[in-house]
Each structure stands twice: as C-alpha cells, then as structure tokens.
Design a protein around this nucleic acid. Structure first.
Lengths: 156, 156
DNA sequence: CCAATGGGTTCCCTTAGGGAACGGAAGCCT
DNA sequence: AGGCTTCCGTTCCCTAAGGGAACCCATTGG
C-alpha cells in the first residue's frame, strides 16, 4: 500500500525499501536469481496475481534492478534478468535467508542450503568489516551522521 | 497489503518477509536500534499513521522481534526494545544500508556512517562464508535443496 | 482547575492487492 | 485452414489495508 513515499527520506534503509519494499519483490528477485525468469513461470511459482506481478516487474525494470529482454523475436517472448544493481540485492536475500533459517525454519531445518564455491562446504553468510575483515554486527559499531544526512532528495 | 500469507511458504525469504515485510517495519526497527523507542517519538520521527504504528508494534512484539516494557509505573509508560531475534534483524538492515548507499545515495553520499569498534575505521559490511571466511556473494554459491524443502508449515 | 504528555483507539476515505476473465500474437497439430 | 496452446499481459470488480484526523484516558505539573 505504502502511500508514504520512502524514496525521499535521507535513509538508505528507506530508499532500499522504496525499491523492493513491497512484499513480493524479494521473492521475484529470488526466482529470477535461480532461473525462473518468465512471466508465467513466475506467476505460477509464486501464486501472485498476474496484475500485481505485471506491476512489480515494470517497477523493478524501471528501477534498474531487472532487465527485460527478448529471447525470441518470431513470437515475441521476453524474460527477466538481474542487472548488476539487482544482483547485489541478492546479497540482501542471502542475509534474509540466514535470519529466516535461524528463527523461522523450525525442526525441519532450512529449505535450501548454500555450497560455497571457494571452499566447497555448506555455509551461510556472515557480516564482516570491509576494512579489517573482522566480524561486524549491530553491537560492533557506532552510527555517525554521514555527508548525505539531511539531504532529502538525492539525485532524481 | 499482502493478503497472501508468506509464513507458510517453504522459503526463508518469504518467512522473513512475513515478519518484517510490511514497508514500515524495517524503519521501526532502525529507530528502536538507535534509541527511538517510545510510541510518540516513533510516530513523529517516521511520520507514520498512529493506527498503523500501533498495529506494527503489536505484530513485532507478537513475533518476538520487539519487547514492550514498562519503564515507569506511576504513570504507566512503555518503550520498545529489540530482543535477540530483533537484534539479528539489524544485520539485515546493515546490508540494506550498504545497498542503499551504493545505489541510491547519489552525490550527497551516505546519510550515515558506521565506525567499527574493533578497528576504529569507517566501514561497511561485506558478506563472508561462515566456514572459510572468504567473501561469499550471489555468484559464489550453488543453491541446493535443504532438509526443510517441501515442508510447508515449519512449526506454528 | 486546566493544560500537557504518553500511548493508543476509532472513524472514514482512498488506494492497492487478489482473482477471474479477456485479449492478442505466434506456433503446432491434424 | 481451423482450432488449440503458449506466452505475456490488461481489465474489472471486490475487499482489505494504509493515511489522517479526532477522540480517549490516566497521570503529572503549574
């Protein structure tokens, strides 16, 4: 619903939510990431209303998160693919998965597992500091005002 | 709106969205994390409707993400605090901030900065593998079915 | 006694999600 | 050639959820 526009707020959380804050968007990105890329596949896999799916896809393409490309011209057919901007959002999904696994999976265990190419092991993501490489969580930081504070509208 | 229930899906992303997928929830958690913890403070800081704020807080408390506690009995006054379950969600917020900083901050730069206690430097989060400690992003993993796949309802 | 503060609740209006039906363009089958 | 099927949406209507403003109640301070 969200009639309050988040994109104008001087907060990167709000601005991220403005792009993918509508509840279906992360699931759409997940599906595209794992290769479910066409309209009907998405609709069936998610159980989303076709109307809402069309709206979401349009929005996500406008935001530069997805790209709509023709994979067949003779019958015009399209599929959706992650842009670099969208691929980085998948990192966010990986952290959501981690939290969901820990707190909502119950006894059945996690629905999916990740195997890390580098070490070949089943693993999950952890947050580390970009500067020193050590773990960095909510308790390990001070939050300071940055240069973009109090600037309501960034660019567009 | 989300009349489709996400909590039943065998997907940790969907189940996480079921808890905090409504657009205001991450901003509420952000505020509580930085110490904006009382109803009126939240309402003013966010510009959210009081009705929706009351609903969200109730939901987040029910979900065990926030805790409502009385900090004064004489006039009964309450504030909200993050539980451990909620504190781990702040990790998710930190990743959202990272994405928002990179892709939506514009020339003004990030609205807030993090200083890492361990090294004292301004930093952002990066995703690493829990097993080998190396970077682990969307391109570095295989996604495999886990034990909880095809189990629609986890516990509750 | 009156106003202010804190923390909500109630009411009404508008808007966005859900579901089902429709549409249209290009194969494919017989 | 006619009709079925696939893909990708659009349109319609209904209901539920968000927004805003007003109201409420308890306590405290002046």
């Amino acid at each position: 619903m969200q009639r309050t526009r988040f994109g104008e707020m001087a907060c990167s959380i709000a601005r991220t939510m403005d792009v993918i804050g509508e509840p279906w968007s992360p699931l759409i990105l997940r599906d595209v990431y794992v290769g479910i890329a066409r309209f009907d596949q998405l609709q069936e896999d998610l159980g989303i209303s076709r109307k809402v799916l069309a709206e979401r896809l349009k929005w996500l393409v406008e935001q530069g998160v997805l790209e709509r490309r023709e994979y067949s011209t003779k019958p015009p057919r399209h599929e959706y693919a992650l842009t670099p901007k969208g691929t980085e959002l998948v990192e966010l999904l990986m952290v959501m998965v981690r939290w969901g696994d820990r707190w909502t999976a119950g006894e059945a265990g996690p629905p999916v597992l990740y195997r890390h190419h580098a070490c070949g092991r089943i693993a999950h993501v952890e947050l580390h500091c970009s500067e020193c490489g050590e773990p960095m969580g909510p308790a390990d930081i001070d939050v300071l005002p940055g240069p973009g504070a109090d600037v309501p509208v960034p660019s567009s």
